[in-house]
Nucleic acid binder design. Structure first.
Lengths: 243, 243
DNA sequence: TCTGGCATACTTGGATCCAAATTAGCCGAT
DNA sequence: ATCGGCTAATTTGGATCCAAGTATGCCAGA
């Protein structure tokens, strides 16, 4: 989807990237070269090149003679990633507001409609724990922001923002917090507000809304993490009030 | 300096990175694997891994079966890189203001003093065209900002900001504009202003000053580029008013 | 039983080798 | 003379092989 599909190393890197951000390869997992080579049906050479790329991208950590492992991200790093993305998203949204064409606006509206529908289906159906549906919702969420990146016509901003976004994916925490209706509802409302500001050609307004949107998402994700941790921590001490 | 020096591939990547940003390897130059392998005294394997890393970092462009070349950056990309760095630098400076310790402040002051002295030497000596001195000045400039990154205690911001900074190095344009006194003087003044705002614990003030500083540098670099291009373009049409 | 040291197995890093693709050069045809 | 196609040389991509470093497990000693 990005670029480079001519060489095995690149397509393997893409596949591993996808596997990592989708949570298929859990953080902390060590990636053995030989095992990957037989999984992809190639020799170790392209595997190593793919791993180099992932290391440069920051998705895996590389320890010289001891192999690579899927990067584990601390709470501080998570917070920082959101702050950075808030900044980049602000910039992208401001630029998009200035450069948005009629087609872009239509695409944004379409993406919002799609996202809104997904939100309704999740909230209405009560099937919040449906992992497939949640995945679809996340993709629709990304699609909305992708329209903004595209309209901003700023490749570097797009690359960095998507990189920051990747950082806090793969932690498989969204699925853990799917019961939080607030998340879905507020995301939808904020998207509408951003879209309205863009349509009204209000770059500063769109900027601050985008910023607030990302920061709010970050705060919410942290709250979800707290909740998840609070629920799983007591396992060490089996004496729970209720079974 | 960064990390990873255990493997040949990593140290080669570092060396090539240095060579690119220092302008030793000019943009557009094709990098032959075999030629690099004999230059570094290793086989092609670590070379290829190093090139993969540089490609992921965006310093070289990778065309599947046709080799890699040092990335050439367009005017639009240059502008975008400055806008991005302005944003990241704003963030870093705000965070640094909030988290700055007494030692950090002392280090910042020392860096500024060093930078100020270099500026004086360049302006006073009139030896602006001394390439070595200019290089020293650029390093001192970086050192000042590095103190801010360090104090911000935000590794991701630091990584991205340095990446954006690398983007417009290696274009070997700074040396071309060394006769512009305004550059040196204003940089020094702005650094002092930023330092003062940080010392006064004024995060918002420091933020906007950092932003303006980077944007001003970007505008100046563009002006220099215009000037350089205007001077070299007419070569195609030899009829000049004055010889 | 637990700890420290040593030998072995495993994994990664680097070199060499082979195949595929691209580029350059050459020849013939119009 | 120029354009098109073909062959050969160069270069990259991938596979295999060897060396070096790390981790595992065993055994001896306290």
């Amino acid at each position: 989807m990005d670029a480079a599909a001519g060489t095995k190393a690149d397509e393997i890197a893409l596949a591993l990237e996808e596997a990592i951000v989708s949570g298929d390869l859990t953080p902390g997992l060590v990636l053995r070269q030989e095992q990957l080579s037989e999984r992809f049906g190639v020799s170790r050479t392209p595997i190593r090149e793919a791993l180099r790329r992932l290391a440069a991208l920051g998705l895996v950590s590389f320890v010289p003679n001891r192999g690579v492992r899927v990067r584990t991200i601390s709470r501080d790093e998570l917070r920082e990633a959101f702050v950075v993305r808030a900044e980049l998203e602000s910039l992208a949204t401001e630029l998009a507001t200035l450069r948005m064409t009629a087609e872009d606006l239509a695409a944004l509206e379409a993406a919002e409609r799609c996202f809104s529908e997904l939100t309704l289906r999740i909230r209405g159906g009560g099937s919040a724990n449906d992992r497939g549906l949640v995945g679809e919702w996340v993709r629709a969420n990304h699609a909305f922001h992708d329209v903004i990146y595209s309209a901003a016509a700023a490749p570097l901003v797009e690359r960095l923002a998507k990189g920051a976004r990747r950082t806090f994916l793969g932690q498989a925490v969204w699925a853990a917090g799917t019961e939080i209706d607030e998340l879905y509802e507020r995301n939808d409302l904020q998207h509408r507000a951003i879209q309205a500001a863009i349509a009204a050609r209000n770059p500063q307004g769109a900027r601050v809304m985008a910023r607030e949107h990302v920061l709010a998402s970050g705060r919410l994700l942290e709250a979800i993490l707290d909740q998840v941790e609070a629920r799983s921590r007591p396992r060490r001490r089996p004496r729970r009030s209720a079974a």
